Amino acid sequence: MATTAAVEQGGARISIAKEAIESFVDQVNGERALALVVEHDPLCMPVGKTKEAWTEAVGGEYAAMARIHIEDGARGMTHVKSGAKLVCLSFAEAPKPFVNEVKQGEHNSVAIRVDRANFESPKSRDDFMEAVKRIDDGIVREEMGRRSIVPEPLIQFVVSNVNLGVALAVGLWMFKRAEKFVRYTIDETLRKTADEISDTLSAKIKEVVRAYSSRQTTDDRAVLTEVVIPSNVTVILITKTNRCEEFSEIDLKNVVAEMEQYGDLLRQAQEVTFFRTGTNDWTLQHLKTRAGEVIGTLECYNRTMERLRLTREIADVAKRDNKHSDASTGSE
Rank of each mutant, 00 (worst) to 15 (best):
A327N: 13
T273L: 09
L172Q: 14
N161R: 09
I135N: 09
V182A: 00
V256D: 05
E188K: 15
A318W: 13
D127W: 05
K51Y: 07
F175L: 15
R32A: 12
R312A: 05
S202L: 10
Y212T: 03
M45P: 00
Q216C: 14
N163V: 14
Q9P: 06
V255R: 01
K81L: 11
F98V: 02
N302S: 07
A63Y: 00
L34H: 10
R67P: 09
V182R: 00
I197P: 14
T304S: 02
V140Y: 12
V102M: 02
R307V: 06
Y301H: 04
K103R: 11
N161G: 03
K253W: 10
D199N: 06
T3M: 00
E142M: 13
Y62L: 15
T55Y: 03
G165H: 05
E245C: 07
E332Y: 15
K85H: 10
A84Q: 07
T189Q: 05
F91K: 05
W173V: 13
V255P: 08
D72P: 08
S23E: 12
N232E: 15
I205S: 05
A74H: 03
D219P: 10
S202W: 04
N232L: 15
E226M: 08
D264R: 10
L310F: 10
E8C: 01
G138P: 13
G278Y: 01
S331F: 12
V158S: 11
V227I: 06
K49V: 01
R243Q: 11
S23M: 11
A20M: 14
A20D: 15
L36D: 01
I135L: 08
P122A: 00
D326R: 11
S121K: 04
R183Y: 11
R312Q: 08
R215Y: 04
K49M: 06
V235W: 06
V140L: 11
G145Q: 07
V37Q: 01
V317M: 15
R146I: 09
V47S: 05
G138A: 13
T200C: 08
G296C: 02
E52H: 15
E293W: 08
K180R: 10
V317D: 12
A169C: 14
R303T: 05
R303E: 04
Y212A: 06
R276T: 07
A327Q: 10
V317Q: 12
L252V: 04
A53W: 01
F98P: 00
K96R: 11
T193V: 11
E179D: 13
R312N: 14
I21V: 05
A35F: 05
G296K: 02
